[in-house]
């Protein structure tokens, strides 16, 4: 089921460029792993609720109050490229 085309499309969804030479190897490795996890298909899980949280209690609420946040300069100082307090990135919106 996992073939080279699926690897390419999943890699695109995951926003990771995969060199074409690496695609066949990854397809093989992932197919091997998926074949292994496929043993779950044999289990009858009808009527079993999915477990999303192991300590699920009541929802956690807090007051909607202003609290201190990280100093903006300390965070922005990590930016590889910035313009004032903005991250500088390539153009997002195409030419009209």
């Amino acid at each position: 089921m996992i073939d080279e085309n699926l690897v390419r499309s999943v890699a695109h969804l995951a926003r990771i460029a995969i060199p074409e030479a690496r695609v066949p190897g990854l397809a093989k490795e992932l197919a091997h792993i998926v074949e292994y996890v496929d043993q779950l298909a044999a289990l009858d899980v009808q009527g079993v609720a999915p477990l999303t949280h192991t300590n699920a209690g009541a929802n956690v609420y807090r007051e909607d109050e202003v609290a201190p946040s990280l100093p903006v300069e300390a965070v922005m100082a990590l930016a590889p490229a910035r313009s004032g307090n903005f991250y500088r990135v390539p153009k997002v919106i195409g030419d009209a």
């Binding site: 890699a11 995951a14 990854l26 992932l30 792993i33 998926v34 298909a41 289990l43 899980v45 477990l51």
Partner: peptide, 25 residues
């Protein structure tokens, strides 16, 4: 990539959803 596959449309139920049910068991 494996995780993206397990969550992707068409595979979610067979993988992620099923695994969460087995997790219950």
């Amino acid at each position: 990539l494996l995780g993206t596959f397990c969550l992707s449309s068409g595979y979610y139920d067979a993988y992620y959803e099923r695994a969460m049910r087995v997790r219950s068991l």
